[in-house]
Each structure stands twice: as structure tokens, then as C-alpha cells.
Design a protein around this nucleic acid. Structure first.
Lengths: 123, 123, 123, 123
DNA sequence: GTGGTCTAGACCACT
DNA sequence: GTGGTCTAGACCACG
């Protein structure tokens, strides 16, 4: 894992986003046990408190279950995961579309632009 | 104009982004005169100092020309504008593509997803 | 039995409260024999050590008598039970009254509120 | 203000509850400015970080608005406050009713008990 | 001067 | 050994 962290945005937010994406993209098993906060913090070269804050936020979202002294596990609610992934994808898409519109790209121009830019990858 | 401002990010940054998009998208004439900082600040319900800082940054980027006592005008360098617009569009696109990949969408799935979500608008 | 356990408070405390309420409310006969710690633990999906700790605390309170190899029984001291029940009820009531006062409910408003909310049940 | 804090439960939780009750009971003006986190922390004899955590949770509930460097203010959404107050009162009442039922008090007995205990105040 | 963030280090209850 | 909490102290961006 890279754990590339920018100091322009709160580290705990970046940790959240990074872990959330890994979970939503299916890299972890449902119900799989998480490393301890201390281990994760060491791995990410971050203070345990910072990692702790990220984990607590992920708990509130329901992605991670806290079993007190037994450590944390990934949620087993697969429909929750799928919904969140789809929801996040939609928000990402519409955010992208809105930004391009603000730059003056109509839907047709957006399509053309993506074709010319991603031709190599999408075709 | 909405001037929707979030208090999660620096105000002056949001002002810059907002004005920059309006310029790049072609809503202003080349060389057109800008409202005064005070008027803009009033319109955006923002401290004049904050708007001032935004304008100075836009000057550094070359989008806005400061004519001293004659007020500020939009640059007349159309190629600069076009380059910046294209550059920003590219960055936006690749950022979007990267985010979708992190959510586990391959190029093909991305294409399918956009078709199903934007069918109404793009067709 | 539900055995609903929150992981925000110590498990053994919740077990104590749960069992204590069952005893005080009169669901058990005086002197009745208790299930074994292991059976109770299994039933509550809890580590036997945790249930053990709860039982020991209940013994200290005098609610449960430990007869060594003969297992545990409910106390036969009916006045003890009645006193504890009344005492707990009083504390519960005054705690409730205090909380409502902190929300700005005077005694009159509290009475009105209870009437309107519990009309169906109390009338 | 007393700021009586028990060390049996998280301090930041107690701070939240304390402040929330003060707001819901109407002790503050709508839109009123809050003391700074540092001042509140000093007043409550608590570390600023602990008070900070409490304030952030109250923000998430919508009770407090954060204006960045301009400090925090009470929300001006009076209907939100009224709804939260009523909701909290209801939950408090039903929690009380449930606890009394677990002690074996039927609705009639609950009524009698309250009459005998609160006679002085309620009559 | 405000809130936000982070680190370092410590103690605690719990299983 | 786990997560939770708290303190102390520091730095930063912002307005």
C-alpha cells in the first residue's frame, strides 16, 4: 500500500477516503478482521490518534464494526457496501459533469472531449 | 449568481475557482471591465479583504489585468484562456477517471456506467 | 429473552442490570435455582468469564446465593428484594424528573406532557 | 454553571449533553455567539481538545454553526430546536416507562407510584 | 484571536 | 493486547 498523504488536506480525511475506497472496491472480505489501530498507524506513518479518528468516522458510516476489545471488522452488510459504492460513483460522475459544464462544456462537447482524450483506453 | 460558499475550505480559494470558471467558460468579453472589489465583496457577502486576496491570485495567473486606478479588466490573451480551459478540463477528466478506477471501475465499466446514467442527457 | 447488548458500556454491567431487573420484577421464585454460568453465557452469546463476573457482583449485592458445588439460587430474603425494587424505582423516577427539568419542563408541563403522550396507555 | 463531570463516562459526551440541554431548554438566544473553545475549556476545567470534540459533535447535530475564524453561533433554526427538544423529551419518557416496566410496574402502578412520590410537587 | 489538526505520551476498562 | 479517552503542547490557515 502506498499511503500517499498530502498535507494540504486533513490526514484523517485522506485516511478515511483511502480506506473507504479499498473497502468499496472489494479488496477486503466481508467480515474480515482489521489490523489494530496501532498497526495501521505505524504502517501509514501516522499518529495512532489520527488513525483512530479516521476509523471512528468509518464506523459512523457503517463500513466498519467495532467489537470493543476484539478489534474491528469489515461490515457483512453487502447491500450497504454495494449501495454506497453506487452512490459514490453517481456523485463522482455528476460532480465531474457539473465541473465540465462550469467550464462551458455541453453534453455533446463533453462526449467528444472524452472520446478524444480517452480514445486509447476506452476503445 | 449563487456564490455558494462552503466553510470547509478557504473562502478566497472558492472565490478564485468560481470567478476563474466564469472567465474560462467565456461568460465575459475579452478586455471587459470588472466590478470593483467592494461591489464583488458585497455581492458575495464576503469581507473585502477576502475578495481582494482572490483577485490578486487571479492576477498572478494572468486572467485579470490590474490597471491601477482604472480598475481591473479581463485579459485579452485569448490563447492563454483557451490553454487554461483545456488544461483544466484535462485535469478534471483524469481526476474523475482515477477516482472511478479507485472505486473498482474498469474503463469498460466506466463507459457502461456513464451511458446508463447520462443516457437522457447525452443521447 | 432478548439479551440486547450495547458495546458502548461494559458487557458484564449490562448483564448485571438485565438479570437484576428480572429478579426484582419477580420473574423468578424465591430460592429458585439458577442456570449454570456456562448455560447463561451461551444463551447470552457471551464469554463465560464475563458472565462469571456479573454473577459475582450480583452475589455481593445479596441477590444471588452461591452454594458452591450445588450451583446458585435466588435469595429467599423477600424484604431485601422489595426494598431494592422500591429503591431502584425511586432513583429511576427522580432521575427522569431531573432530566425533564433540564429540558425546561416544569412539574406542570411534565404532567401535561405525560398525559398527552401516555393517554392511550394510562387511561 | 456547575460543569459537574463524572469520570465514569467520556467527558466529551457529558459536555455535549450538558450544552445540548442548555440550548434546547432555551437558555441561549437563537444565533447567539458562543465563547471560544479555549474559554469554554478553561471554564469547564477541561483540555481544549476535549471541548473541541464536543463542539464538533454538536455541529453535526446542527445545534451549532461553525463560522470558521469567526467563532461558533447557536443555530437560528427554531423549529429544529423545538423538534429536538420534543424528540428528546419523548425518548426520555419512553425510556423511563420502559425501565419501570422492567421493574414490574404496570401503567396503573406507575401512575400510582408517581402520585405518591411526587404528590408534593405535582398537586 | 479563531478553529483545525496533529503528535506524543499516558492511563484505563475490558475480554 | 485491544480500543477509548484525555492531556499537553504545538503549528497552521484564516479573516
Amino acid at each position: 500500500m502506498p499511503w500517499k498523504l498530502s498535507n494540504e488536506r486533513p490526514i484523517y480525511i485522506q485516511l478515511e477516503e483511502f480506506i473507504e475506497k479499498r473497502i468499496l472496491s472489494g479488496e477486503y472480505q466481508l467480515g474480515e478482521r482489521f489490523p489494530s489501530v496501532r498497526d495501521l498507524a505505524t504502517e501509514a506513518s501516522v499518529n495512532p490518534n489520527t488513525m483512530q479518528k479516521a476509523m471512528q468516522d468509518l464506523e459512523k458510516k457503517g463500513l466498519i464494526i467495532n467489537n470493543r476489545t476484539l478489534g474491528r471488522t469489515i461490515t457483512e452488510d453487502s447491500s450497504l457496501l454495494e449501495n454506497m459504492r453506487l452512490e459514490l460513483a453517481k456523485r463522482t460522475l455528476f460532480h465531474f459533469k457539473k465541473e465540465m459544464e462550469e467550464l462551458g462544456y455541453s453534453s455533446e462537447e463533453l462526449l467528444q472531449f472524452m472520446n478524444s482524450e480517452l480514445k486509447l483506453t476506452l476503445d
